[in-house]
Simulated scan of single mutants.
Amino acid sequence: MSPEFEKDFLRQRSTNIHELSRDPVRVLITSAMWIDGGYWLPYAVLYTVFHAQAERWLGTLRWLAVCVAAHVLATLISEGALLKAIHDGVAPHSAAYTLDIGVSYALAGVVGVLTYRIAAPWRYPYLAVVLIVYGVPFAASPTFTALGHFVSVLIGLACFPLARGRGKPWNPKETLAALRG
């Protein structure tokens, strides 16, 4: 795609305020099918590691429920916050057309729910790292995207009922002992 065509193509699939007001269902679905620019490799690696583990552990329907909940709810919350910022004069009106695509909110939700896959006490350092990775950018520069990622993690954590009873949690200590023989 030429850069101009790509920009227009992605903007029509963006979950920005303008597109959400025109056709919310279409853009909520199509925005999750694309990634912006050169970020495909990190998302491919994270998708493979986190999503594959989560889908195997939760089952396809529960995994998909976490992904959809995180993507849709975080999009609506973050774009709602941006709309308020526009109305309050904190953000420019042009922000309603900001490019907002990708699977990152779904990924952040899965990262959150995977907290319950890890046995205590190991889950607490994992949770601390997750909250730091997603919370520090939001605290340092509270953009709508940083808000969306942080909210996605919280949505993933709120999906505990989907994780309950899904088998024995993974214990890193047991894995290390097995590797040592």
Rank of each mutant, 00 (worst) to 15 (best):
A52D: 00
Y105N: 12
A108H: 06
A91G: 14
E79M: 15
V66W: 09
I77V: 14
D100H: 09
A44Y: 11
I101D: 03
T48F: 15
W57R: 06
A106C: 06
L73V: 13
W57S: 05
L46Q: 14
Y47L: 11
A106P: 15
T48V: 10
A65E: 05
L76V: 00
A65C: 03
V49K: 00
G109K: 13
S104W: 12
H93Q: 12
W40Y: 10
L58N: 11
V72K: 07
Y97H: 01
A69L: 11
Y47T: 11
Q53E: 04
L99C: 11
V49N: 02
G59T: 03
G80C: 00
G112N: 11
R56W: 14
H93K: 14
L64I: 06
A81C: 09
V110Y: 06
A74M: 03
R62V: 07
I77R: 08
V45Q: 05
A65D: 10
L73Y: 04
L41W: 15
W40D: 00
I101T: 04
H93S: 10
I86D: 09
R56G: 04
R62C: 06
A85R: 14
L107E: 11
A52G: 03
L64T: 08
H51G: 14
T60N: 12
L46H: 04
L83Y: 01
P92F: 01
G80V: 05
A74H: 11
P92K: 06
G109N: 12
A108S: 15
A106Y: 03
W57K: 01
A85V: 08
E55H: 02
H71F: 08
Y105K: 13
D100G: 11
F50V: 11
V110F: 05
V45D: 05
A69V: 09
A95C: 07
Q53K: 08
A54Y: 05
V110R: 03
S104A: 08
S104V: 09
P92Y: 02
V68L: 05
W63Y: 15
F50G: 04
W63V: 02
S104G: 07
G112P: 15
V66N: 11
H51F: 14
L61C: 05
P92Q: 01
A95V: 00
L64Y: 01
T48A: 13
V110D: 03
H93L: 13
L64N: 06
L99R: 07
A108K: 01
I86L: 02
V103P: 13
A96I: 04
